[in-house]
Design a protein around this nucleic acid. Sequence first.
DNA 1: CATAGTATCTTGCATAACAAAGTACTATAT
DNA 2: ATATAGTACTTTGTTATGCAAGATACTATG
Lengths: 111, 111
Amino acid sequence: MNLENAQVQMRKGILEYCILQIISRGEVYASEILDELLNAKIMVVEGTLYPLLTRLKNAELLDYQWKESTSGPPRKYYILTEKGTNFLEGLDDTWIELAESVKSIIAKTQK
Amino acid sequence: MNLENAQVQMRKGILEYCILQIISRGEVYASEILDELLNAKIMVVEGTLYPLLTRLKNAELLDYQWKESTSGPPRKYYILTEKGTNFLEGLDDTWIELAESVKSIIAKTQK
DNA sequence: CATAGTATCTTGCATAACAAAGTACTATAT
DNA sequence: ATATAGTACTTTGTTATGCAAGATACTATG
């Protein structure tokens, strides 16, 4: 148990939310998602992202389409299903509530 | 994979942070922590909290003292160690960064 | 002395994160 | 042509941990 581990733990919970957010903007493939998450300082590696995308696909929140690339191997472009869109709306609320919960606990600490 | 599960997932990551926050205010026993987390709408059950407190104790972030109760069995009162205090400061920063990361991703979605 | 209330601990299962290695395609330099 | 580098997706094995459920144990009360 060290600080780095705890940071990993903390961002785990919101990973799914961020991925759905990114896909909600339009079709995107895994490496692009990976880059954007890293840009936003949300640490994630392939071994986490790919299985997670597969789980979301199996849960019918996502769908994908293979498309050829002019500069490398073919890519899986993901989009949200209708179910995924509804799910994401639920997570929007959850995130807001969670942020408020943390805020309320911090406020009590500082009282 | 359903909405309730995802909410649980989201809360998981910040559980450790909230627990340390609560203990940082002064000595407190597990059931009190449990109540306060539930009050703040952070769902957690005994089977999660007790092993987590034990892990934090083993990592030397927490220490505890048994105290007798006038109305039931004895209680383990937890306090932060110096290491725990430093650790919590690190998590403060992590939480702020994480909230900003999520905010930046949401902002991009709404562009 | 049985029941309820409070408090902590343990067991066993299922899920999931991730490091590491593998597969496979394209572009470019030699 | 072929070796190397870059890109993209997949799989495997280990480890951690969340949690339902049940156990243990103390006190107060009817």
